[in-house]
Simulated assay, not measured.
Amino acid sequence: MTTTPRSPRLLMLITVLLAVVGGVALLGVPHGHELPAPATASTAHAANLPAAAATPASQPTVPTPPSPQSAASGASTPSVPEPALPPHGEGVAGDQAIQRNLEAAWPADLPATDQRELLTAGRALLRADATGIGRAKWPQVFPASDQAVAPAFATARFRIQAALARRDGRQDTAVVHLVWAGTDRGGTFTDLRITDWHFTRTTSKKGAVTWTWQPRT
């Protein structure tokens, strides 16, 4: 199959028209501007990303300051310093500080009448044990054989520095905690010694309450 060749005049006319149309298009572009280049795949993708994703990785991140609530919860409460014990050999002047320190560390949990009874018994027991004075009043604590033993501490240098009575785990048990000083038979003086005496409460049929010494276990 053959085709009829185009006329040379027609081809020339088409060429002239294309040249004129191209010149008109170039005249419409402002001076100093270029036509935008076609967007590539990478630039088109970047244009569609959100602003946060387009932030350079090298840009420093500013930490968010903690809220007042979080700062308050993370703050530690300063501890209140406890009163220090007096140095060894302070003498009677330091006994009040020891008593205050004991009472602050171990709040009272017994009625005042029970405390007085227990403290009286605890002090007497400690004196009898250390110096031998009054052992006959406590036969269940100091049998006859113990009463003949020479006391370990001299009476003149014996001193109870502080004492308190508190519950000992149950409602019917108590402990008398004593801090004391004394000079032993070798002539050595020591203070801030600690002794505990344990008691059990019994109630008679008439309702009288009595605290009875309990042996050490």
Rank of each mutant, 00 (worst) to 15 (best):
residue 72 A to P: 02
residue 72 A to Y: 12
residue 72 A to M: 11
residue 72 A to D: 10
residue 72 A to G: 11
residue 73 S to I: 11
residue 73 S to K: 08
residue 73 S to F: 12
residue 73 S to V: 15
residue 73 S to D: 15
residue 74 G to R: 07
residue 74 G to T: 10
residue 74 G to H: 02
residue 74 G to C: 05
residue 74 G to V: 02
residue 75 A to W: 01
residue 75 A to L: 02
residue 75 A to R: 06
residue 75 A to G: 03
residue 75 A to N: 04
residue 75 A to P: 00
residue 76 S to V: 04
residue 76 S to H: 05
residue 76 S to K: 06
residue 76 S to E: 01
residue 76 S to A: 12
residue 76 S to L: 04
residue 77 T to M: 09
residue 77 T to R: 02
residue 78 P to S: 10
residue 78 P to D: 09
residue 78 P to W: 02
residue 79 S to F: 07
residue 79 S to H: 15
residue 79 S to P: 04
residue 79 S to D: 08
residue 80 V to N: 00
residue 80 V to K: 00
residue 80 V to S: 00
residue 81 P to C: 11
residue 81 P to G: 03
residue 81 P to F: 01
residue 81 P to L: 07
residue 81 P to I: 00
residue 81 P to H: 00
residue 82 E to R: 09
residue 82 E to P: 06
residue 82 E to W: 11
residue 82 E to S: 13
residue 83 P to G: 08
residue 83 P to I: 14
residue 83 P to V: 08
residue 84 A to E: 12
residue 84 A to Q: 10
residue 84 A to K: 10
residue 84 A to T: 13
residue 84 A to F: 03
residue 84 A to R: 07
residue 85 L to T: 04
residue 85 L to W: 10
residue 85 L to Y: 01
residue 85 L to P: 05
residue 85 L to V: 00
residue 85 L to K: 02
residue 85 L to G: 02
residue 85 L to M: 10
residue 86 P to M: 09
residue 86 P to A: 09
residue 86 P to Q: 14
residue 86 P to D: 08
residue 86 P to F: 07
residue 87 P to T: 12
residue 87 P to M: 10
residue 87 P to Y: 05
residue 87 P to Q: 12
residue 88 H to P: 13
residue 88 H to K: 13
residue 88 H to M: 12
residue 89 G to V: 00
residue 89 G to Q: 09
residue 89 G to C: 01
residue 89 G to R: 01
residue 90 E to A: 15
residue 90 E to N: 09
residue 90 E to V: 13
residue 90 E to Q: 15
residue 90 E to T: 15
residue 91 G to K: 12
residue 91 G to W: 06
residue 91 G to D: 13
residue 92 V to D: 14
residue 92 V to P: 09
residue 92 V to A: 15
residue 92 V to L: 14
residue 93 A to F: 11
residue 93 A to M: 10
residue 94 G to R: 06
residue 94 G to N: 06
residue 94 G to W: 03
residue 94 G to S: 03
residue 94 G to L: 05
residue 94 G to C: 08
residue 94 G to F: 04
residue 95 D to I: 05
residue 95 D to G: 04
residue 95 D to E: 12
residue 96 Q to T: 04
residue 96 Q to P: 01
residue 96 Q to V: 08
residue 97 A to S: 02
residue 97 A to C: 01
residue 98 I to A: 04
residue 98 I to F: 03
residue 98 I to M: 01
residue 98 I to D: 00
residue 99 Q to L: 05
residue 99 Q to N: 04
residue 99 Q to C: 02
residue 99 Q to V: 01
residue 99 Q to T: 03
residue 99 Q to Y: 03
residue 99 Q to W: 02
residue 100 R to F: 10
residue 100 R to D: 15
residue 101 N to P: 09
residue 101 N to H: 15
residue 101 N to G: 13
residue 101 N to Y: 04
residue 102 L to K: 08
residue 102 L to T: 02
residue 102 L to N: 09
residue 103 E to N: 15
residue 103 E to A: 14
residue 103 E to L: 14
residue 104 A to W: 01
residue 104 A to T: 06
residue 105 A to L: 06
residue 105 A to E: 09
residue 106 W to C: 09
residue 106 W to S: 14
residue 106 W to F: 15
residue 107 P to L: 06
residue 107 P to C: 13
residue 107 P to M: 13
residue 107 P to D: 05
residue 107 P to R: 07
residue 108 A to C: 04
residue 109 D to G: 05
residue 109 D to S: 10
residue 109 D to Q: 05
residue 110 L to P: 03
residue 110 L to K: 07
residue 110 L to I: 11
residue 110 L to C: 11
residue 110 L to A: 07
residue 110 L to Y: 07
residue 111 P to T: 01
residue 111 P to E: 03
residue 111 P to C: 05
residue 111 P to A: 11
